[in-house]
């Protein structure tokens, strides 16, 4: 038993996801646009990587391609060393969508139960598991509410609980806290950080909030505006477990943020890039 634990602890260096020379071009009005241009990205087992970049640079598209929800025109994606074919949905990949994608006709507990049903978890275990997850995301007492009755922050918690229920080995999160107000955003971010440090799975986290990216991630990848390219990478040397708010006052944090801001500022405005 001890042997397998040590093997597990040694695992973080192995590669979970590997994106090689990934490109995507599409055609509108006889003109071919390059949306993603030769993306190279590696994600180690249990690593948390954040992607920041101006809006419209192709972050959502990149996640969708990895999740098998969209095609790409060149390059390869390897998950656990396996080459994923074009638009095939790989197992064990859980996506948190930019809008929360909750089923409006199902209650909170039913929304969270869906991945358990899909994964064939026995009905007797589903209820306990759902209750456990709702506790985890601070939604006790809201099991029977419908999504429309909840605030934006609470809907995000439901979406998070649902993805946790699917229990993926790779989380793809597309601006999961995007539309929230600043205060709720920081709170949920902090809660999520605690949950993640406990669960310890690989995460690819897209955001336009540089501070959020640094506070959460082991590594921050900076993308350029269209065509989307990787411009820089920053390792975040802040040790874990982290205090989501306190880390913002450390010197490392300031330095990385300064660099990333500089890199983003030298980019043309997204409006001038589009069309």
């Amino acid at each position: 038993m001890t042997a397998s634990v040590t093997a597990d602890l040694a695992a973080p260096t192995s590669t979970k996801l590997s994106v090689r020379n990934l490109s995507l071009s599409y055609r509108t009005n006889k003109v071919r646009h390059l949306a993603l241009d030769g993306i190279n990205l590696d994600l180690a087992e249990r690593e948390f990587v954040a992607i920041v970049g101006p809006s419209g640079c192709g972050k959502s598209t990149l996640l969708k391609i990895i999740a098998g929800l969209a095609d790409h025109t060149a390059g390869e994606i390897y998950l656990d060393g396996q080459n994923l074919g074009d638009a095939s949905v790989p197992p064990g990949v859980g996506m948190v969508f930019q809008n929360d994608a909750l089923l409006p006709w199902r209650s909170v507990k039913e929304n969270v139960r869906l991945p358990l049903v899909i994964n064939g978890v026995p009905a007797s275990e589903q209820r306990d598991r759902v209750a456990e997850l709702l506790t985890m995301v601070n939604l006790d007492g809201y099991a029977d509410y419908y999504p429309r009755q909840l605030s934006g922050g609470m809907r995000k918690r439901v979406a998070l609980a649902r993805t946790l229920a699917y229990d993926p080995s790779l989380y793809l999160m597309d601006e999961p806290f995007g539309p929230l107000d600043a205060q709720t955003r920081v709170r949920i971010g902090g809660e999520f950080l605690k949950i993640w440090e406990r669960v310890g799975k690989s995460v690819l986290f897209v955001t336009h909030d540089v501070e959020e990216a640094i506070a959460l991630a082991d590594r921050v990848v900076v993308m350029t505006a269209g065509p989307g390219k990787i411009k820089a990478e920053h390792r975040v040397p802040i040790p874990r477990p982290r205090d989501y708010e306190e880390v913002r006052f450390t010197d490392e944090f300031h330095e990385i943020r300064q660099q990333i801001w500089h890199e983003l500022q030298s980019e043309p405005l997204p409006d001038t890039v589009k069309k």
Binding site: G68, V93, M95, P115, I118
Partner: peptide
């Protein structure tokens, strides 16, 4: 809503 279908698809429903 496309996102809902993408959601079930990503869960391999």
């Amino acid at each position: 809503d496309r996102d809902l279908l993408d959601m079930t698809k990503s869960y391999r429903a």
